[in-house]
Simulated assay, not measured.
Amino acid sequence: MTALSRRGRLAVTAVAAVVLGGVAVGYARLAADPAQPLPSAPVTGPRMHVLSNGRLSAVSRADPAGPREVTGQRCDRAHAAGGTIACLRPAGALAAGALVVLDEGLRELRTVPLTGFPNRARVSASGRMVAWTLFVDGHSYAAGGFSTSTGVLDTRTGALVTSLEEFTVDGEPGQAADRNFWGVTFTADDNRFYATMSTGGHRYLVVGDFAARTLRPLVDNVECPSLSPDGRRIAYKAAVDGDPGRGWRLSVMDLATLSSTPLAETRSVDDQPAWWDDSAVVYGVQRGDGTNDVWTVPADGTGTPRVLVPEANSPAP
């Protein structure tokens, strides 16, 4: 072996050591330096999708805090289920925001141009139905005078509802001027869904029928619902004493009795929770420095919250 080839092999070894060292540093630098290349590792077996510093990523369900596979897809909010990925793309200097529907191979299947600030996204368990919510005016559910736009797409038929304000509410064909909708979650039949409707200072859980274009209020003070895998419960955020200005408490409602159980997470959580399985929910919490973490807590009110995926948000188990 020549001295030149030996030097070349040593250089390759040194570069490899630097790369591995960079991965070992982890994700602590991502929020501080968004331009830094993201460490990535292939994830096999059952996975959960999250966003890592605004990039669509996947972690292993067996080791959620371990290595993650980071893609080049940038999203402000994302959700995945049944082989379908919904990515709410941020608006750029030369492009408007959009809903981009991807398959598991990250091939773009449908793009819906959108105007507003991306806030919520949800895919039905089968992957057929996609819903999203944007802030059109205002950027907080705790603030007065905010306005939202929530749409639904049937990826099988191509049917598109650009706003739930097109639906009839409880037999009333007209729409109240102050009605806003957000936080859709689908049932197993891909037709019925639950969402939040605000009007007259109240935030109601409503049940919707996509085919009939109808909505029916069920109960007050339910925001950002998420249907459990068994279809029997709703995880949601409830305004403390009915006042969003005081924050929100994660809770779970039994749909048969409409009775609710506050969860052991006592911090204010402004997120649409998701279900890890029938016994636990997951959700994002932002630190004081702006970094997000995905947390989990039991769904029966017991236990203690714990970090599931550090430096991530928008979980889709």
Rank of each mutant, 00 (worst) to 15 (best):
Ala125Leu: 11
Ser126Thr: 15
Gly127Gln: 02
Arg128Ala: 12
Arg128Cys: 11
Met129Asn: 03
Met129Trp: 09
Met129Arg: 10
Met129Tyr: 08
Met129Ser: 09
Val130Ser: 02
Ala131His: 06
Ala131Asn: 03
Ala131Ile: 06
Ala131Gln: 04
Trp132Asp: 01
Thr133Leu: 01
Thr133Trp: 06
Thr133His: 01
Leu134Ile: 01
Leu134Ala: 07
Phe135Arg: 00
Phe135Leu: 06
Phe135Ile: 07
Val136Gln: 15
Val136Arg: 11
Val136Ser: 09
Asp137Pro: 01
Gly138Gln: 06
His139Trp: 13
His139Lys: 13
His139Asn: 15
His139Val: 12
His139Leu: 15
His139Ile: 12
His139Gln: 14
Ser140Pro: 00
Ser140Asn: 04
Ser140Gly: 01
Ser140Val: 00
Tyr141Leu: 10
Tyr141Val: 00
Tyr141Trp: 00
Ala142Gly: 10
Ala142Gln: 15
Gly144Trp: 03
Gly144Thr: 15
Gly145Glu: 04
Gly145Trp: 05
Gly145Tyr: 04
Gly145Lys: 07
Phe146Ser: 02
Phe146Thr: 05
Phe146Met: 07
Phe146Trp: 06
Ser147Met: 00
Thr148Phe: 08
Thr148Ile: 02
Thr148Val: 07
Ser149Ala: 12
Ser149Ile: 03
Ser149Thr: 12
Ser149Gly: 14
Ser149Pro: 04
Thr150Gly: 03
Thr150Val: 05
Gly151Asp: 02
Val152Lys: 00
Val152Arg: 01
Val152Thr: 08
Val152Glu: 08
Val152Gly: 04
Leu153Gln: 09
Leu153Ala: 05
Leu153His: 02
Asp154Cys: 03
Thr155Val: 04
Thr155Phe: 00
Thr155Met: 00
Arg156Ile: 11
Arg156Ala: 11
Arg156Phe: 10
Thr157Asn: 03
Thr157Val: 06
Gly158Leu: 03
Ala159Cys: 10
Ala159Trp: 11
Ala159Gly: 10
Ala159Asp: 14
Leu160Phe: 13
Leu160Asp: 13
Leu160His: 08
Leu160Cys: 05
Leu160Glu: 11
Val161Gly: 03
Thr162Trp: 07
Thr162Gln: 14
Thr162Ser: 15
Ser163Pro: 07
Leu164Tyr: 07
Glu165Val: 08
Glu165Arg: 10
Glu166Arg: 13
